[in-house]
């Protein structure tokens, strides 16, 4: 649970970095829409995905090509997708 909480904290920090200026002070909660509430468009989501590599010491590689960023609509979607991406990348690294 603690590991989960720390993971979410890291990803939420990455999401906060992607929020454009005027909306930066928004308190991020899981139900918020990435685009409509936080102003994060698909490019911002792509940047978030790439930043997962640095934040978690992983290589996403070709996994990124299967990503459908338009399915990441809310903060909760981004957290879930990030979890999947990181665990798949870690599994590939240890394989």
């Amino acid at each position: 649970m603690e590991a989960d909480a720390k993971f979410d904290e890291k990803v939420l920090a990455l999401i906060a970095e992607a929020i454009p200026g005027p909306l930066r002070k928004t308190r991020i909660t899981p139900e918020l829409m990435l685009r409509n509430d936080l102003g994060i468009d698909s490019l911002g989501i792509a940047a978030l995905v790439f930043r997962l590599e640095e934040a978690f010491g992983i290589e996403i590689g070709d996994q990124a090509l299967d990503l459908n960023v338009s399915q990441m609509r809310t903060v909760a979607d981004a957290l879930n997708a990030s979890r999947q991406i990181v665990s798949r990348a870690r599994a590939q690294q240890t394989a």
Partner: peptide, 25 residues
């Protein structure tokens, strides 16, 4: 152009991934 903008922000953007996202649309 998109990759240039992302790289400038310190994001290790892959042209292949950006192309994949763009082509999905």
């Amino acid at each position: 152009n998109m990759v240039t903008a992302l790289v400038a922000q310190g994001v290790r953007a892959s042209p292949k991934m950006i192309a994949s996202m763009y082509l999905q649309k």
